[in-house]
C-alpha cells in the first residue's frame, strides 16, 4: 500500500465541545463542519451556537419588555380619570425602563440557561444535523481522503463511536505522517484490539512520542498478546517503550513492561533508560528492570564511552 503525502489542517480547539456546533438561522439545521451553505435549506446563514444563545436571550428579554408595555397600556385603557392615565403611563414607562436597564447587564449570564432550554427543544434537529455531517464525510471519502479525515476528526469531537474512530484510523494509515502534523491519539483509542490502531500507535511512538500517555499505555498493556501476534508487533512495542523512557514517571509506573522490551531499544533510547534506572530511586534500584538493564549494559555497552560519561556525571552529582 502506497502512502500519500498530505497537509492536514491543524485541529481547532474549543473550551467546550458544544461550541464547535453552528446552527442555520433560517431552518435550525445543525452542523459541526465548516460548510458555508446549509445542506437543508441552501442559505448561507450559519452562526455559532453561542451567538444563537445571545439572540435567543435578547428575544426573550424583548418579549418581557412587550409584556411590560402591554400592562402599561392596559392600565391606561382602564383609567377613568386623567390623573389615573398620567400615573399609569408614568409608572409603566419607568418600570419598563428599569426592567430594560437590568436586562442589559444580564444578557451574558442568561445566555447559557437559554441555550440549555433550546437544546432540549432541538434534540431531533441536532441528531439529524450530525447525521448529515457523517453522510457528507463518508460521501467525500472516495474523492478526497484528507478532507474526509478532517471531517471525521471534527465529527468525532461530538460523536462518540468506534466506527468513526476506525474510519479515521484507516484514513490515517494511508497518509505519510510527519512530526509537524497536528495528530491525535487518545481520541482514537478503541475498546477492542485493532491492527490498524496498533500500527498507528507504533508510528506515533516513533514520530511524536509525547502523544503516548497513560490511556494509550493502558490500551497497549490490555492487548499486549495481540500486539505480539502481529508480524511487527515486537518492534511496535519496543517503539512504545522507546517513547515512554522520555518520562521517568512512566518507567516507574510500568517497570515490567519496560523490562520486557528493553533489549530491543536502540542505543539512544537505552541510554536514556540506563540513566533513569541508575539514578537514585528506591523504586527502581533493586527491581527486575534494574537487573535487566545491568545485563544489557554488560553485554552491549560496557565499553561505550557515552555510558561512562553518564555514570561519571551522575557520580559527581552525588
Amino acid at each position: 500500500m502506497k502512502k500519500v503525502p498530505v497537509q492536514i489542517r491543524p485541529f481547532r480547539r474549543t473550551r467546550y465541545a458544544y461550541q464547535r456546533l453552528r446552527v442555520c438561522k433560517n431552518c435550525h439545521n445543525f452542523t459541526v463542519l465548516w460548510e458555508k451553505e446549509c445542506l437543508n435549506c441552501g442559505r448561507s446563514s450559519f452562526i455559532p451556537v453561542d451567538t444563537m444563545a445571545l439572540r435567543l436571550t435578547k428575544r426573550s428579554m424583548q418579549t418581557e419588555r412587550l409584556i411590560a408595555l402591554f400592562l402599561t397600556l392596559a392600565g391606561v385603557l382602564f383609567s377613568t380619570t386623567f390623573e389615573q392615565i398620567a400615573i399609569c403611563l408614568g409608572s409603566g414607562i419607568v418600570l419598563t425602563l428599569l426592567l430594560w436597564l437590568v436586562q442589559r447587564q444580564m444578557t451574558l449570564s442568561e445566555a447559557p440557561r437559554q441555550l440549555h432550554k433550546w437544546f432540549e427543544k432541538e434534540q431531533q434537529r441536532l441528531i439529524d444535523g450530525l447525521r448529515l455531517n457523517i453522510e457528507a464525510a463518508i460521501g467525500i471519502r472516495q474523492q478526497d481522503e484528507r478532507l474526509a479525515y478532517e471531517m471525521l476528526r471534527e465529527i468525532g469531537t461530538l460523536v462518540n463511536s468506534d466506527r468513526n474512530r476506525l474510519q479515521q484510523i484507516s484514513l490515517l494509515r494511508n497518509f505519510v505522517l510527519r512530526r509537524d502534523m497536528d495528530l491525535q491519539l487518545e481520541s482514537l483509542l478503541l475498546f477492542d484490539f485493532d491492527e490498524g490502531l496498533a500500527e498507528y500507535i507504533g508510528e506515533i511512538a516513533r514520530i511524536k512520542p509525547e502523544l503516548i500517555k497513560e490511556r494509550t499505555l493502558l490500551y497497549v498493556l490490555d492487548h499486549e498478546p495481540e500486539f505480539l501476534s502481529m508480524a511487527n508487533g515486537r518492534e511496535i512495542l519496543a517503539a512504545i517503550v522507546g517513547a515512554i523512557v522520555r518520562m521517568k514517571r512512566y518507567v516507574t509506573l510500568y517497570p515490567e513492561f519496560t523490562r520486557r522490551y528493553a533489549r530491543f531499544l536502540p542505543k539512544d533510547r537505552f541510554l536514556r533508560l540506563f540513566r533513569i534506572v541508575t539514578a537514585d530511586d528506591p523504586h527502581l534500584q533493586f527491581s527486575n528492570l534494574a537487573t535487566e538493564v545491568a545485563e544489557i549494559y554488560n553485554a552491549k555497552y560496557q565499553w561505550d564511552p557515552d555510558f561512562h560519561q553518564s555514570a561519571q556525571s551522575t557520580g559527581q552529582q552525588r
Binding site: 458544544y18 447559557p112 437544546f119 434534540q123 441528531i127 461530538l158 460523536v159
Partner: peptide
C-alpha cells in the same frame, strides 16, 4: 448556569439518542 452542563447535555443527546 455551568457550560459543562450544556456539554453533557449535547453529548448525551447526540450519543444516547443516536
Amino acid at each position: 448556569f455551568p457550560k459543562e452542563e450544556i456539554d453533557r447535555q449535547v453529548l448525551s443527546i447526540i450519543n444516547d439518542r443516536r
